[in-house]
Amino acid sequence: MELLRRFARHPGAVVGAVTLLLVLAVALLAPVLFPGSPWDMAGAPFSPPGEDGMLLGSDSLGRDVAAGIAYGARVSLLVGAVSTAVSILIGVALGALAGYLGGVVDDAVMRFTEFFQTIPSFVLAILLVAIFTPSITSIVAAIAIVSWPPVARVVRAEFLSLRNREFVQAAEVLGKRPIAIVLTDILPNALSPIIVLASLNTASAILLESSLSFLGLGDPNLMSWGFLIGSGRSVIRLAWWMSVFPGIAIFVTVLALNLIGEGLSDAMNPRLRKRGAR
């Protein structure tokens, strides 16, 4: 409750949350708003925005750009959410292991994480999706595989510092089992940065998905924002709306997620909280 109040004090965060809800609504209502497949011809090719009953114009095959954006929202949000969930799971598991156990395990996990952080993640994502053929599964997997390292690092750092905190030592002196200590004493106190990271990671996952589908690595059966921009690229002199509007959709969604992330981070930052209390 207290957290929600602090979050609401952050105007940007509220705007972000409302925007995200709107995008979510459009995604859910896509079949209602635009009955019929977004791949079907809806009017004359290259209709500028507003003409032929199409708010945002049509593409080279006469498909409605607005419908494409609405259906694309489903893919973007789905990919963003699922790949983030997976990357958080991997990151938390590895980070917790490294931070709690320390020593050799920590060394090994951190080398592994550093390695994944060193290699150019976007190139790796391209390679993975290309080799395993583009599909929603391979895209989600590729994005998750390249986005867990920051999570692991943050979780490890949190665990490392919490593990030496006196209340964790007290729990150990009480004879609690390690698994209970991790779950009830350490993890709940490491949650804030993980939540912040989750919202920021969702944003970058959406960017990554759009980049992949821009390069033609999207799921061929699913409409997506990056695909729309990619198909508008070669005809940008002829039909600017084909690339402009999907780009705005990406921008708005990613910005909203980033704003939420910042609002959460401010609301949960203990240092700022302390300053407010004194």
């Binding site: 905190r165 209340f167 007290a170 002196v173 709940p188 106190n189």
Partner: peptide
């Protein structure tokens, strides 16, 4: 032996789990 040997810590701000 945990029952028989217990400990009190130094830092009053770090020795209690803030979420408990």
């Amino acid at each position: 032996f945990r029952r028989q040997i217990q400990m009190v810590f130094q830092d009053p701000y770090a020795s209690l789990n803030p979420r408990r």
